Amino acid sequence: MPNPPLILASEHGKLHPDIPDLIRHNGNHWRKIFSILAKLGTPADCRWQDYRDLELLHRHEVICFADGLLPTAQWHLVAGKASWQRLGFDPGTFSPLDDEGRVLIRGNILLTPYPDYRQFPNRTVEQVRSRLER
């Protein structure tokens, strides 16, 4: 992600972020981002809304704003062309994952659209989820 959400001083140093609180203080833009991330990672026995509000970023996911990949990550979802460029990825060296070519894959790296409903619709979410579950 190119820009982190604003984090209140009371949230700094917490092991698990309070997603509803982050949404309240950062607005609809971050609600969309967290919702798409939740849809990608929600277990089959859970509603994505509950997962977003109670468990997202507590166990399996990390949002990174660094200029490099985390070496221990199982998957890397690089969101948005600005992030692809900042990290030096050439989309031409990746293969399309989905029908529309919105998501590109090479190894365990996925170049995804920015997590916004228009760019990352539910159909794309399902195609990425399917790949992550393999």
Rank of each mutant, 00 (worst) to 15 (best):
M1Y: 05
P5F: 01
L6C: 10
L6I: 10
I7V: 10
L8C: 10
A9Y: 10
A9L: 15
E11T: 09
E11W: 06
G13I: 11
L15E: 11
H16I: 13
D18A: 11
D18S: 10
I19Q: 08
I19W: 00
P20I: 11
D21F: 06
L22H: 02
R24V: 15
H25I: 04
N26Q: 06
N28T: 07
N28D: 10
N28V: 08
N28K: 05
W30S: 08
K32P: 02
I33N: 00
I33M: 05
I33A: 03
I33F: 03
F34K: 06
S35Q: 01
S35C: 01
S35L: 01
K39H: 12
K39L: 13
G41C: 02
T42D: 00
D45W: 03
D45K: 04
C46R: 02
R47N: 10
R47G: 07
W48Q: 06
Q49I: 13
D50Q: 11
D50F: 11
Y51T: 05
R52Q: 09
D53Y: 04
L54M: 15
E55C: 11
E55A: 11
L56H: 04
L57N: 06
H58C: 14
H58R: 14
R59W: 15
R59C: 15
E61N: 12
I63P: 04
F65Y: 14
A66D: 14
A66I: 08
A66G: 12
D67K: 09
G68M: 14
G68K: 13
P71A: 14
P71D: 14
A73K: 04
W75M: 07
H76Q: 06
V78M: 07
A79V: 06
K81C: 09
A82P: 03
A82I: 15
S83Q: 10
L87S: 08
D90M: 07
P91A: 04
P91Q: 05
P96R: 08
D98M: 08
D98A: 08
D99K: 03
E100Q: 12
E100K: 15
G101H: 07
G101L: 02
G101K: 00
R102I: 07
R102Q: 04
V103L: 03
L104K: 02
I105E: 00
R106S: 04
G107R: 01
G107S: 12
I109H: 04
T112P: 05
P113Y: 03
Y114W: 03
P115S: 15
D116I: 09
Y117H: 00
Y117S: 13
F120I: 07
P121L: 01
Q127Y: 06
R129M: 02
R129W: 07
R129I: 02
R131F: 03
E133K: 13
R134A: 10
